[in-house]
Simulated scan of single mutants.
Amino acid sequence: MNTTVNILCYKWKTLSNGEHPLMIRVCKDGKKKYQSLGVSVNPVYWDFKKNRPKANCPNKEYINKIIADKENDFTEQIVQLKSERKQFTVNRLIEKSTKKVQPKTVNDVFLEQIQRLTDENRHGYMLSTKQVYNSLMEFNKHLDIYFPDIDVAWLRRYETWLRKKGIAENTIGIRFRTLRAIYNLAIEDNIAKTEHYPFKSYKVSKLHQETAKRAISKEEIKRIIGYSSKNKFMNFPIDLFAFTYYMGGINFVDIAYLTRDNIVDSRLVYTRLKTGKLIKLPLQLQAIELIEKYSKTNSPYLFPILSTFHKTGMSRVTHSPRRYVCSMVSQ
């Protein structure tokens, strides 16, 4: 069934000033839905046959503009939904057509995202986003701009600026992917429009450089594991490296969060912090020996990297396992 959209003067309701509200009526599948346009008109100034204000209607141009804008909004949504072959109801159509693009700046969206990531304890991603925010502030001097201002030419200027600063190719790629993610977020939140999206033409995928594979031989691994020092602070990072080797290349940060609860039926069971993927590995004898060497009854962790001192996500980032081990080695 066709979808029809009509503007009418809703004469079944009379306001205190004697005027009738202007309504938009949407009909589909035998159902009708009315929505107010937020304006009213005296019935003597309304042409009920043409459903338009009469020539002598006060504020005629203003009312006609509101009517035209609303009709265009609904027409665009109907065409888009039909082109995507999506089924929709009258309520869904009105919901999509009444969503307005919010006038938020790029600065607003960045700061809201940084705060959101902080609240969600995603501090690693938050710090990465904040780094891009600071970079853009340095480049553009401010971010009190709207998303349509970030066009292809703007992106190219930013890329050139980063290259002049000697930023590595893959780092440039990371910054652009973060900026693209912020732009996508703005579109999802109805802050930016897809027709202004610059990344259809500006391809972030080009900002990638293959790096040489950095691997060491099995003999070199054995030499590292077999190294012994009288300095216990030197032995600790070597033991962590050995644990990684014995346990299928477990990520360094994931090691830091391991507790006794991660040992289930002689297997190491944990969820990768980065990807959320569940990992199950049989515990090797050498790995068990390392766990017994470092685990303490007064600590929930298998290795002395984190402690109960690290109560928040931010403190875990600030006192990250890598920094902790490096400080131990420097001693």
Rank of each mutant, 00 (worst) to 15 (best):
F303H: 00
R316T: 11
N140V: 06
T312A: 06
D261S: 14
I255R: 08
V204Q: 01
C27V: 10
F252G: 04
K222P: 01
F147W: 06
N2L: 11
T178S: 12
P304A: 02
L283D: 02
S201K: 15
D151V: 13
T275L: 11
N134Y: 05
S330Q: 11
F110S: 08
F236R: 04
K222D: 13
Y146E: 07
N64T: 12
G30C: 02
A55L: 13
K49Y: 08
F236D: 00
P148L: 04
F243N: 06
S307C: 05
K28C: 13
N231C: 05
P237H: 12
Y257I: 05
M126P: 03
R116Q: 06
R272E: 14
P43K: 02
N51A: 02
D119Y: 00
V39Y: 04
Y62L: 05
Q102D: 03
V106E: 08
E19A: 14
Y197P: 01
S295C: 13
G18M: 06
A215F: 11
E219L: 00
F243Q: 02
P21S: 02
D144P: 00
Q87R: 09
L22P: 02
I288C: 02
N235R: 11
N170C: 11
R316W: 01
H142P: 06
R157N: 15
D29H: 10
L302F: 04
G276N: 14
Q80D: 10
M137Y: 07
Y270D: 03
T178D: 12
V109Y: 10
L306C: 08
G38W: 03
S330I: 07
K165N: 14
H123D: 12
P198M: 09
C326N: 14
R272H: 02
M314V: 07
E138A: 14
V152T: 15
Y257M: 01
F147Q: 08
G249A: 05
P300K: 09
P103C: 05
L278G: 04
I67Y: 09
V264K: 13
R323K: 15
K230Q: 03
S229I: 07
C326A: 13
E195T: 12
N262W: 00
N72C: 09
R180D: 05
R85F: 13
A212I: 04
E112W: 10
Q87S: 15
L37K: 10
I263E: 03
I78S: 09
R85L: 12
R122T: 04
I255A: 04
Y125P: 01
I63G: 00
G226D: 10
T211M: 10
K230W: 00
K164Y: 09
N107E: 15
Y34N: 11
V152F: 03
S266K: 14
K274Q: 06
N251L: 09
Y158D: 03
M1Q: 08
M247T: 08
I94Q: 00
I172E: 00
I78C: 07
Y158V: 02
I279N: 07
I263D: 07
F110T: 06
Q113M: 15
K49Q: 12
N184R: 14
H20C: 12
K99I: 14
D144F: 13
K311T: 15
A55K: 13
V41I: 15
G226Q: 02
T244A: 15
R177P: 01
K130L: 01
R272L: 12
G124E: 09
I78M: 13
K230V: 01
K165W: 11
N42M: 06
